[in-house]
Design a protein around this nucleic acid. Sequence first.
DNA 1: TCAATATATGAATAACTGTTCATATAGTAA
DNA 2: TTACTATATGAACAGTTATTCATATATTGA
Lengths: 115, 115
Amino acid sequence: MECQHKAEHEGAARRAIENMPPEGEVERVAAIFKTISEPSRLKILFALRHGEMCVFHIVEAVGGAQSAVSHQLRLLKANGIVKSRRDGQNIVYSLADEHVVAVLELACTHLHCKL
Amino acid sequence: MECQHKAEHEGAARRAIENMPPEGEVERVAAIFKTISEPSRLKILFALRHGEMCVFHIVEAVGGAQSAVSHQLRLLKANGIVKSRRDGQNIVYSLADEHVVAVLELACTHLHCKL
DNA sequence: TCAATATATGAATAACTGTTCATATAGTAA
DNA sequence: TTACTATATGAACAGTTATTCATATATTGA
């Protein structure tokens, strides 16, 4: 049985269906946001805003166990949020690109808080 | 015992600690990202890009049970991602502000995919 | 080679979260 | 009021995930 809604918004509904990204793309975007949606990982990103850092200093900056930070860094890297390079005994991490900072800043603007 | 890292990056580490947002602010930002990090909720946002829609049409656009969509809408609204107004028997939802679209577009750019 | 530092990883547990089912609330028309 | 449509909500279960602990790998210096 048909619904009794006003026809006004059916155009929007139709366009929404036609332009819905394929399932895989939605899940890729979702994975990005999920990766940066945990306070512990978000702190790492806030820390890396100020320049590249090795794991030891990241642990200092965000607190928590070295093992936990390492697990989180692996997730961030696997999802393309951060990148890393070896420098002697250290692994130096940095934000993958400028989009990351831009997204963080937009979210803060949305919340009316200063980064 | 002191670590043996190069001093190069200690400036970044110090700045990171000094500029780390307070715990509450980190968690508010994290909550925003967590809210938009589920494929089902993300689909709702992709759908609402094309204009406001009532729940019935959102269900049509994203699939799934009405109850599930309603739960998701509640979360989205509680976190300030969408807003709603009543229109007769219908509740019409729309994106809360332009930041939401901007964040989605940035994430897609990051993934090199067209929105 | 050995010892020390730096980082990563596997497994296990505890906490969290999305969905479903059943039901409740609210508006509309008769 | 009653019947119907539209939306919301509470509880419970299943699946996911972050952390901890113990251990492994890799680099450096002696």
